[in-house]
Amino acid sequence: MSSHAVHSITAAKLPRRRKAGGLRGFGGAMPATFLVILFFVVPVLALLLRSVLEPAPGLQNYETLLGSTTYLKVFANTFIVSTLVTICALVIGFPVAWALVIMPSTLTRIVFAILLLSMWTNLLARTYAWMVLLQRTGIINKTLMQLGVIDQPLALVNNLTGVTIGMTYIMLPFVILPLYGVIRTIDRAVLRAAALCGATRWQALTRVLLPLAAPGMAAGGLMVFVMSLGYFVTPALLGGTSNMMLAELIAQLVQSLVDWGLGSAAAFLLLVVTLALYAVQLKIFGTRQMGGR
């Protein structure tokens, strides 16, 4: 029945197709639209309904989430870690993306292969590898102690430090790839012009290169931030039990406590924040072409 309704809408719009530019080709997009509705819109609505209907109709689930310090701490943890991961990934990712643009193309291909290989390696394996590296008797602590930098091993794992380190590593490709795409389109003659205008390397970086790379920074940064907000595996393995993140909370609410209503409310809040951030990014960078020129 719903498919019949879509059909009649399409038929009604057809004669005015030229005028209604946004609907041009809608008929061809119909199966895809149907799939999006079935697999995306319906589950989200179900989620929303559950959060306001279970265990009883009302907003009490949201009140519980936003009213308790325990849950607010989980939100705070999530935002702090996501922010730190985004900043670290951008700070590390920008020079890497720049290096990828200026290095000889054979080397670029090799570095890309390494990047992709790390992305394709199992997430659990990579996270466990960080556990080994970061633990008290791990190679990082041992090296630092042998060098005399520290006396006591640093607590690098089972806390938010460990989560931040591990997630920064996992998120790096998601910053590097869009940044590479944007930086590659920046004409390097523009940087030469900046140099002849009297700009030092630092001034050329901050006043020319970074502003021109900003769309890529925003795209990569937003992607990393949003992915970090809902990340589960790495925080669960590298984080401690005392400082939980949102995805862990949702898992616990649904799996251990079987509180679907509260879990749905938490998941829905996460979705709202994500969409709000996306809207902000669209507002700032709009439909402007991602690129230097």
Partner: peptide, 9 residues
């Protein structure tokens, strides 16, 4: 320069 090198931003 030969190419347009004004700072586009």
């Amino acid at each position: 320069f030969q190419r347009y090198t004004l700072f586009p931003h």
